[in-house]
Design a protein around this nucleic acid. Sequence first.
DNA 1: TAGATTGTTAATCGATTAACAATC
DNA 2: TAGATTGTTAATCGATTAACAATC
Lengths: 226, 226
Amino acid sequence: MSYGEATTSAPQAERDGRVSSNERLSLGVAARLSRYLQVLTQAKKMGKETISSQELSDYTHVNSTQIRRDLSGFGKFGKRGVGYNVEALVSQIRKILRTAGQHNIALIGAGHLGKAIASSEIFADHGFRVVSIFDVDDAKVGTPIGNQVVRHISDLRQVVEDEDIVVGVLAVPNQAAQGLADELVEAGVKIIFNYSESLLDVPPEVTVHTSSPAVDLLYALYFYLT
Amino acid sequence: MSYGEATTSAPQAERDGRVSSNERLSLGVAARLSRYLQVLTQAKKMGKETISSQELSDYTHVNSTQIRRDLSGFGKFGKRGVGYNVEALVSQIRKILRTAGQHNIALIGAGHLGKAIASSEIFADHGFRVVSIFDVDDAKVGTPIGNQVVRHISDLRQVVEDEDIVVGVLAVPNQAAQGLADELVEAGVKIIFNYSESLLDVPPEVTVHTSSPAVDLLYALYFYLT
DNA sequence: TAGATTGTTAATCGATTAACAATC
DNA sequence: TAGATTGTTAATCGATTAACAATC
């Protein structure tokens, strides 16, 4: 069989650059599926049973054709004239993203932001469980936040190991961020979500995502002003 | 002159789909420039004088060729063998995004999250000034946060008008979000930054940006797991 | 049936990347 | 000079969009 024939007989999804079930998603597809999931999770909470690609588009700012295209690469999840079943689509996307399970995260920082994060459902709704909150301030250690008790940062390494933690969330002041990022890295965390503005230097095997509300605003403002 | 000639003689930037100084940026370019600006602002704070496209790439996860391409569409800002002057590039990008000025924002919610936002420099660093903090809780009204005093939500409309506020930041619980979004819309705000998880319904002339740390994590986790 | 919305095609546009001459 | 990094080209890949038949 020639390579030409092999290419021609590949499924449409693959010829288009989309993935088969055992291939890695492209960056763009994975990012968009995650956003659909967020909206769907919230829609489910609000008791919505079905949702159309147009509604998903309104909430995610992703073109509705693009949404249908993204989803149809993995199966025919929708019903013509009706839309997508919210609950079914949530579990389909969770499967595709292979994040159907529960993931443990460590939260660093027991200040206002740390408290806000620990008591919100932002992470819990997506299967992320804050298993422990850490701070360097001895005065805060031992105080309760949500259903946790603040622990000293020196316990970090042990907890990361015991609880199989891959994700660390940094909710600390700028000056403390790099030092605590270093501790997270040493403890074995692979993904850091950075709520500070500091530019964090980490080894290549660790990924940093920085929260940047101001970036979104700058960008929104540009389109408002022009 | 034929249309063909007109097209051929257009500057490279325009033929490529990039903009001339009086045209609107594409969505992608505006979003990326905003991210460069965030990193540059922080780099400037850290006393960095020059930065290479590779360094910018490391922090933004945008390909370095793409960064050079984005910037060269507006001028020759870099110095070969050296990189870009941080301070000069900041002001260039601010000019391009037309957000060189100061913008007033209203913050809704004086809970943990509201306090965290008001006392951080996340917004201030990018020219956004929190001119007023609002809450519905009479017990919180009058208490100081940062250099502000919490006001009752009933003052919102007046403040938005007086201070020429275009952006509202919602730092409130899910259940309260839609109601307060309605108040922001009625008061005349055009851009809402939503820290709650609620799906907000707003008129078409208003833009909602929802904070979604969990989306970023889901996405990062996918690439870690595969 | 009539209306709505999916799934899919095809065409176009923008993003990505490697490569490298120019030049600091 | 030697090394580094920009600015730019050209080729490829993925995203976007309009359009519409299929079908619920």
